[in-house]
Amino acid sequence: MSVIEMNRSTSISLPGAVSSEIWQKTQESSAVMGLARAIPLPGLGVTIPVILGDPEANWTGETAKSPVKRAKLSKKTMIPYNLSVIVPFSNEFKRDLPTLYDAIVQRMPGALAKKFDQTVFGGAEAPGADFDTLKACTAQEIGTNAYSGLVAADADVADHDGILNGWALSPKGKAVLLNAVDDTKRPLFINSVAEGAIPMVLGAPVRQSKGAFVAGTPNVVGFGGDWTQAVYGTVEGVKISLSDQATLTDGDTTINLFEQGMFAVRAEIAVGFRCDTDSFNKLTKA
């Protein structure tokens, strides 16, 4: 989808139910939002504690003092960054409002979810210094021996005092695992061809996302990690507005909505993301 900028607008708010449905579908479409913990995010940001180590219990004798052990904590600041998309429509969509709403709900969530996931997974530049990405996390190769690479990722997360409790796979990552077989040529990660899905890997749930693919040498096809160490937050969900008076700039093309019998819908979220990057591994395939 092209990047479109709206430089003049007379906006009309759409029904709140449309915004709510778009936000719900954005969360469903995003692997990161499906796996990470959600928190409310104030407009000015918030300082969140990051747990670096748990307190340790110890045995004590009768009437002996219990040991005092403090958890190791750090702090990070999460601030909201704006993520938006504008989609133009012909005026014919206005003839039937349910059709318009359906079209908006179908097109908007995927664009927002994909860009958010791409940014978290390092396929797009972070919007600022207070937005964490997994671009530089430890890599495990799964193209040659998928099972060995997945176990290595699980072990590395454990070495950093985490528990690998979720995977985010790109469609290409799913294909790698579907092709993985044992010595007798039986698939490792599915029960049957008819099933065709990979709901769990090494006991942890799997979410799919196009944003989990990062082209490179080698390609990144997925991620695994301890998602209790990842947090995202939004200020007020998705804001939706509609305009038929704006001028849009789509690359080198200028669109005057009024002159061309069109209107545009803008979806915007103010969102932040923070995590302990040591608790994640990326999966690569040459």
Score class of each variant (00 low, 15 high):
Glu5Ile: 12
Asn7Met: 12
Ser11Tyr: 11
Ser11Ala: 12
Ser11Glu: 15
Ile12Asn: 07
Leu14Arg: 03
Pro15Leu: 02
Pro15Met: 04
Pro15Phe: 04
Ser20Cys: 06
Ser20Tyr: 09
Glu21Pro: 01
Thr26Tyr: 10
Val32Asp: 00
Ala36Ser: 09
Ala38Met: 12
Gly43Glu: 07
Gly45Ala: 06
Gly45Trp: 08
Leu52Gly: 15
Asp54Glu: 15
Pro55Leu: 08
Asn58Lys: 14
Asn58Pro: 10
Thr63Trp: 15
Thr63Ser: 12
Lys65Ile: 14
Val68Asn: 11
Val68His: 13
Met78His: 06
Leu83Asp: 04
Ile86Gln: 06
Val87Asp: 08
Asn91Ile: 11
Thr99Glu: 11
Leu100Gln: 04
Pro109Met: 02
Gln118Cys: 05
Gln118Thr: 04
Gly128Pro: 05
Ala129Ile: 13
Phe131Gln: 00
Cys137Met: 10
Gly143Phe: 03
Val151Gly: 05
Val151Trp: 07
Asp154Trp: 14
Val157Lys: 10
Gly162Ala: 10
Ile163Phe: 15
Leu164Trp: 04
Gly166Ile: 01
Trp167Asp: 02
Ala168Ile: 03
Gly173Met: 06
Val176Leu: 08
Thr184Arg: 11
Lys185Arg: 13
Arg186Cys: 04
Leu188Arg: 06
Ser192Trp: 01
Ala194Thr: 06
Ser209Met: 00
Phe213Ala: 09
Phe213Tyr: 13
Pro218Met: 03
Val220Asp: 07
Gly222Leu: 04
Phe223Glu: 00
Gly225Leu: 01
Asp226Tyr: 05
Val231Gln: 10
Gly237Thr: 00
Val238Ala: 06
Ile240Ser: 01
Ser241Cys: 04
Ser241Phe: 06
Asp244Thr: 04
Thr247Arg: 09
Gly251Tyr: 00
Asn256Phe: 07
Phe258Ala: 13
Met262Arg: 12
Ala267Gly: 10
Ala267Phe: 00
Glu268His: 00
Ala270Tyr: 07
Cys275Ile: 06
Asp276Val: 09
Thr277Cys: 06
Asp278Asn: 14
Asp278Ala: 14
Lys282Tyr: 10
Leu283Gly: 03
Lys285Gly: 09
Ala286Thr: 13
